[in-house]
Design a protein around this nucleic acid. Structure first.
Lengths: 217, 217, 217, 217
DNA sequence: AATGAATGAGCCTTCATTCAT
DNA sequence: CATGAATGAAGGCTCATTCAT
């Protein structure tokens, strides 16, 4: 059913413009209130139309989330892939990927928030199977950077790569909860600060820190 | 309304036990499916009773979340306060607080998950105003540790304390999403790994890393 | 079921005293909030016990209303019957019945209110069939007084007896909504005022009022 | 919420018609079964739709009662105000107001019944505060008629105006419980009968009735 | 494209009642 | 007599979705 709408979706999300507007509206609401708590009428109200009218543009609320997430993940993967393809070496690659991620937070905060907060639940639905697939891709990509770095002696060899990957991934993406593009720190500032900590730690450098710290005053 | 039940609750969660059971059940479901997506029937089903019967123990679904979150935040704050009171110096305090947090994730995963995923939305409700109050307390506590450390030369002086606080807070708590108590890594293992990275970074130590890294191969 | 309780009820409502207390409590609540809007727990709360415990005394909420209404109607009928038996003549009988009614309002405001507000709905239930029976008795009683009065020339012969009966009945009983025993007017005061109006009207007595009043300044 | 619907309501009950239909249905049910005992499903069933569909037209069950009562009280007040404005003198004004009231009973029996039976309870809710305000207005209006009449010597000077006002008000409105528009008596017949009694009393006119009646045979 | 009316399923909650202790 | 836990039915309301106009 809904042949016309379906056709348009097939045709790519350029066209109408109205589509993109509605999607952006929905994304912001999903991000702010949560996917389940956002009603179709909330979206329609924001667009100044009646809830039923939304179904001229989208098959369902789920489709909206789908389109939003798919677009976000595709864009993110493209970016990551380009960085990796540049072959900058583990350290620079890591820095570039982190910086790119913070820029994504700056440019697509709603999408990132949805990815952070809703992906886990949505991934259970068949149509969102690609979420887990993308997660696997991203994990591999990250682990390769880290593993290469360790092998090349750029990163410490005592690292638990899986753990480091998770820490980085989480820290970066959760920043969407507080990062404010209008604030004093640019996305690149934040990235630099984070990379500073990640690479060199917050401790001062008198001597190498032992596994279990002895008492310092 | 529900004066009788309320009275009992006030009196402490002595006796019943059933209360605690139900609360634990609810917490797990809230954590797994999200607060809004968890129906009262889900909880009742899990407890083997009818949904209406839950209201013999609790005033509302909201009260359950309230009780869960309140208990969690009180417990967490007590723990933090004890550590701070021990006056171990910034570095050891930081290590102790991080370790304690991972132990909370191990021991109260559902509560932590609810705090992570639902607190933001619930905090809008008047009855959950204490969430924001606690957040302020925690922020002050963390910032003091970091600020003291910088002043004492234990932590680098070029740190943006607010940013570091956020990175730590987020990284630690988001770990609830993947930390598995039944896995090979103990909570303390994870804490040590994280502290290792946080304090000393992941980079190897040939030379001090510059602010803006030139190309290292 | 509930043999013991049933036995006690059979035995007459003297005994316990607790029974009467509870019934009085229930009556007041039924009167104030309405029968449907009064919950069994409201009554139990007022009595300082748990709602389930009420069922030691009464079979059901309906039984309480039943007992209250039955008692009220029996008492009222006894009173009316005694007045009629005194054979005072239509006018004095009418005055006595009106006065007795206002005294009932003073002494049993809750019961009267329940009769006024709930009887209509309860009467549909089989167990409350006696309500309509009583209403018929009362109607006959009232109509006889009026008819006798007309026949004896004490009351105007152009009266529509049925209508007069309804006007009197309604006006008297609805007074339960506003009559305040603690106020300045005694029940007998109110009765006298009403009888004054009912018997002689509120118009001044220049001349007999015509059926359709011409214009008076 | 339900902004759209609300907007339409504001705009006047033009167009829809459906709204008015549903409201009339609801009014009849509220009147017959009582407000609390009438379920939203009852109303929907009567309208041949599902209960949820009612919420396309109204915000809540309460709103329906609100709209019904508000409309009724506004209409009634307009009518009374016009009569008062005609300045017919106390007696004719009283007659006109009584007659108008019985016509309201004839034309809007459901609304009157709701006013009689439910207003007291609803008035406790903030949104129904206007009920008490209207009651005050009506009371003033009635008392003025009576007071003027007494001052002009048209009504007896020994009247307790407040009491007379209450008797009239109650007698008139309670008639909604039994008045049947399809019966032999027209609303104006009933009004005339009642006015006959109210003005001149039911007693025959040999002599002025004394305060306390001596024995007549 | 959009409206407006409706569906149908489900949600949170209430409440009279039961019953083992 | 009373408690405390539970039942089962129902109630008001929400919401994604459909569809004729």
């Amino acid at each position: 059913m809904n042949t016309r709408t379906a056709k348009k979706r097939q045709a790519g999300n350029n066209g109408s413009g109205r589509r993109a507007e509605l999607l952006a509206l929905a994304a912001r609401l999903f991000a702010d209130r949560g996917y389940v708590s956002t009603t179709v009428r909330d979206i329609a109200d924001a667009a100044g139309i009646l809830s039923g009218s939304l179904y001229h543009h989208f098959d369902s609320k789920e489709s909206m989330a789908d389109e939003i997430l798919r677009g976000f993940l595709d864009g993110l993967f493209d970016t990551y892939a380009q960085i990796v393809a540049a072959d900058l070496g583990p350290r620079n690659t890591l820095e570039a990927v982190v910086a790119a991620s913070f820029r994504f937070i700056r440019d697509h905060p709603a999408e990132v928030a949805i990815y952070q907060n809703e992906a886990k639940h949505l991934a259970h639905l068949e149509r969102f199977a690609y979420i887990d697939e993308r997660n696997v891709e991203f994990r591999n990509l990250w682990r390769k950077i880290l593993t290469d770095g360790v092998r090349q002696g750029v990163f410490r060899e005592d690292l638990d790569v899986e753990l480091v990957y998770r820490f980085i991934r989480d820290t970066v993406w959760v920043a969407v909860r507080w990062y404010n593009p209008a604030g004093t720190l640019s996305a690149d500032d934040v990235a630099q600060q984070y990379l500073g900590i990640l690479l060199d730690g917050i401790a001062t450098r008198r001597r190498r820190t032992k596994k279990t710290g002895e008492t310092h005053g």
